[in-house]
């Protein structure tokens, strides 16, 4: 069943077109990575999906409803981001206590176990938590709601290395135990690649691709070898990225195709993370060219 159906979705802010033209569909019970550069529109898209902000035009259906101001969407989805806030009159323990009233499938056991594991102080106030601990608490809250559509916006911001890997592990384990649709945005694709089935890559408010991770891994190859040979091989091809290694050798990334084996030219696979970076790059060359 389709959870999210987005057709030509646009969102305009006063001086900015945050979303230009977003069209995609999300099937149920998949973990999808929402990938994009800074300012690509990831957060805007998630907020529209959660019903916090209005679309400007186009069509959006979450559980076959327009999410804005919709109670059904609100009851079955959650957006975990760093803007989540809770009243200062409630301690963390109080928050976990009132949550089951709102979320019918709240998993008290999971919430309490994770809470203990991450050694959060039950008497602490949410606003007084450190950035990392707040992110951890929000993550626990998000997982425990067990909403059919669970969205995380940059969930690992502020978490330390150990907590990050624990978070990914917890997410995966809970997903396997209770499959549901999870949409997780990040600019660190590499560290959560092992979780994802699909990737939704957006750039400047447009969907670049929505494919399985495997397809993206096979999207491009890199050729590395003597500059003149590599340049000859890549003539007329779509070049995604180039880098001058030294005065003789060049590194060029092109769309995957059968490249004849040539002496001195090495063919490398390109990671999904690099593919996403290259296809969303606006400039030829890299930061090195700035310093020439």
């Amino acid at each position: 069943m389709t959870i999210i159906d987005c057709q030509n979705l646009k969102k305009r802010y006063k001086r900015l077109n945050a979303l230009e033209d977003i069209t995609f569909q999300l099937e149920e019970k998949k973990i999808t990575g929402l990938i994009g550069r800074n300012g690509a529109g990831k957060t805007t898209l998630l907020k529209i999906l959660a019903g916090f902000i209005r679309k400007s035009s186009g069509d959006i259906q979450v559980f076959s409803n327009n999410p804005f101001n919709n109670l059904r969407v609100s009851a079955n989805s959650i957006l975990v981001d760093d803007q989540m806030s809770f009243p200062d009159s409630l301690t963390l323990a109080d928050i976990l206590e009132v949550a089951p009233d709102f979320y019918k499938r709240w998993d008290t056991e999971l919430a309490n176990n994770l809470f203990k594991y991450f050694r959060l102080n039950p008497k602490q106030l949410h606003s007084r938590l450190s950035k990392g601990n707040r992110a951890t608490f929000n993550m626990i809250f998000g997982l425990a709601t067990r909403c059919e559509l669970t969205m995380f916006d940059e969930p690992t911001n502020g978490m330390d290395e150990a907590v990050r890997s624990d978070f990914y592990r917890a997410l995966l384990k809970d997903y396997i135990a209770h499959p549901r649709s999870i949409l997780i945005s990040s600019h660190h694709l590499a560290e959560m690649e092992h979780l994802l089935e699909d990737i939704l890559l957006i750039h400047k408010g447009k969907v670049i691709f929505h494919q399985s991770l495997e397809e993206i891994k096979d999207y491009a190859v890199a050729l590395q070898g003597p500059t003149d040979v590599v340049e000859k091989m890549t003539v007329g091809k779509e070049i995604l990225h180039t880098k001058q290694m030294d005065s003789q050798r060049k590194y060029v990334v092109i769309r995957t195709e059968d490249v004849p084996a040539i002496e001195g030219v090495k063919i490398h696979p390109v990671t999904a993370s690099d593919v996403c970076m290259y296809v969303t790059s606006d400039r030829k060359g890299g930061i090195d060219d700035v310093f020439k």
Binding site: G51, F52, N69, N70, L71, S74, A75, Q83, M84, S85, F86, P87, V98, A99, F102, Y103
Partner: peptide
Amino acid sequence: NTNFSFVTNGIS
């Protein structure tokens, strides 16, 4: 924002 951390919509 606090209210919208839980299930709600504008009317409720």
